[in-house]
Nucleic acid binder design. Structure first.
Lengths: 332, 332
DNA sequence: CTGAAAGCGCTTACAG
DNA sequence: CTGAAAGCGCTTACAG
């Protein structure tokens, strides 16, 4: 029922091979012939069949995107960059939303079933990563800097990001600064912790440094830690949080315990998502170049299709400190 | 290089037809034979080829999702429902993010290129819809109630949603209530305006009713209207906004003009996205069942694949009033 | 510069 | 219950 390359060939009076050449813009077709084919395509409203191409070429022109959720605007913003660049380049993106782990099996099943040319993955577990790498040749980690450096990745310079906020906080006179971070096997998280340690030590504050680990990385997790912090009567004057969502939750909890932000305590986040600008006061945060991370991820993986990397590569983007109203000079 | 159904057939000592039957769980294969095939599949680690299946069956097992952006959590939350249910059912979703119109052409091109079994669309223009309907048989509008009722859709009961907030505002003593809405050719938006008119009239407030139209539906658009409202010295005591993003922008502008929310003016939104809970004070809003809308959309479109609807259908879900801190009794 | 033909990996009547 | 074979709509050496 649908019009095929054969119909076009007949209409144009050429062979299907020629039609194929014209459609794929391959060189070496006489202008006149090309014109005839194009007219036929036009006339018959030929639409090319993706499945047939995929079967014949062995490439699906589909890239998978695995992410934990879309609630966190960080993922959503990176995803937008990915979709944008994918559209520019005419590749399709299939999103595998893991729903914070609840959909892992289904995600794997789909991966298996649908042969994708490559996969972009954000914050997947080490375990899942190794399964995925068995299934797909080209995998790029987006936003994660994996421990053993065996997978190509694209990340923000986390060390210098933390350094930026830390300098900001130190310059405001803070000394009792805590770091609130999720636990993770990823190097990017470890880098942040390392940077925190480094800055505290450099400032001669080694003995007051304290890392508080959270269970997850959602608003609720930050909130829970805020309540705990109040309950335990901790006395930091500033808390640096490794993502905006948790920072927002933390602030919520502190506020409802009667703390004034930033008068009583300064809070800074990480990611620089758009929500950081709408909370009150606006959140001081380290902005990751999210959209660019997404577009670069597509560019990178498509380069890999052309010429497989001999060795895993790591692309590092620069963060930017975004000063809001949640950090202020320490009250004497 | 990859293992095919032929390899499995040889290994199991049966024909490819039989292997196909087993893989697709078709009835009428002797248990013993089935077992042999399954062993072979296991042993050879056979993975089925999506493109070949798609070509042979004429169905791609892919559903397209067209949305304006992912910044607005409304779309993100509906999308999560869609991804969730799609994973449950083993279908793939290709997201076509239109980037608020900037990617329209690319979106259409991809649609064309990749034969999808169906398409779910959110807030696409009338013009785009008609183009899309030429390309794809099964289209479902998600969140939009299209004017001429020719397309199957799944929407919230917008009329009763507005009625809920209006009753809430009226019960708080407000009379000078404005509606802030985007312009739209969609029936759902018109329904909201209609509901507003209806409620004002019912309350005997016909002559003070006022609809303020915005250019877009982003935070910035709400902000702009807030500034304009202050500049023009309007005197409503409550403003009902047709989406959370604009409401947040509006509140931001009002606050920075020195207005107290809700003391000086009450503001209510629509959608009930998660961000409505993190702004300060939490936003009163009409919550749409976003996640459910997404899951239902997948169910609906997959039903349509089975048995094409003789006539377009409309599925209506119920909204819920979510009272926050941005609405209060009028000050006398 | 162009065409005939094999092949990509499945499904599905049809026959037995 | 099982198999032989055609067909899905392309691409791509190979030949001319």
């Amino acid at each position: 029922m649908s019009v095929t390359i054969y119909d076009v060939a007949k209409e144009a009076g050429v062979s299907v091979a020629t039609v194929s050449r014209v459609i794929n813009q391959q060189p070496g077709v006489k202008t006149h012939t090309k014109q005839r084919v194009m007219n036929a395509v036009e006339k018959l409203k030929y639409q090319y069949n993706h499945a047939a191409v995929a079967l014949a070429t062995g490439k699906s022109n589909v890239i998978g995107l695995m992410l934990p959720n879309l609630q966190n605007p960080f993922y959503a913003e990176v995803a937008e960059g990915i979709y944008q660049e994918a559209m520019n380049r005419g590749v399709n993106v299939i999103t595998l939303n893991l729903m914070d782990g609840k959909n892992m099996d289904a995600g794997l099943r789909l991966l298996n079933q649908f042969s994708m040319d490559g996969l972009l993955a954000m914050d997947i577990s080490k375990d899942l990563l190794s399964k995925v790498e068995n299934l797909i040749e080209h995998v790029v980690l987006v936003g994660n800097d994996y421990l053993d450096g065996r997978t190509t990745c694209i990340v923000t310079d986390n060390f210098s990001g933390i350094q930026m906020v830390m300098r900001h906080l130190l310059s405001l006179g803070h000394t009792r600064i805590a770091l609130l971070s999720e636990k993770s096997e990823y190097n990017d998280v470890k880098d942040r912790i390392r940077a925190y340690y480094h800055c505290m030590e450099e400032a001669g504050l080694s003995e007051v440094r304290q890392v508080i680990y959270t269970d997850g990385s959602l608003i609720e997790d930050g909130e829970k830690e805020g309540e705990k912090w109040v309950r335990q009567g901790l006395d930091h004057t500033a808390i640096l949080v490794t993502n905006d969502m948790m920072a927002i939750g933390l602030i919520k909890a502190l506020k409802s315990a009667g703390k004034k932000i930033p008068e009583d305590i300064s809070v800074a986040g990480f990611d620089g998502t758009w929500v950081s600008a709408i909370v009150d006061p606006p959140l001081t945060s380290v902005a990751q170049p999210k959209f660019e991370m997404g577009t670069s991820a597509i560019s990178l993986i498509m380069e890999m299709f052309q010429s497989p990397l001999s060795t895993p590569r790591k692309i590092v983007l620069s963060p930017r400190l975004q000063i809001g109203g949640t950090t202020a000079a320490i009250q004497s």
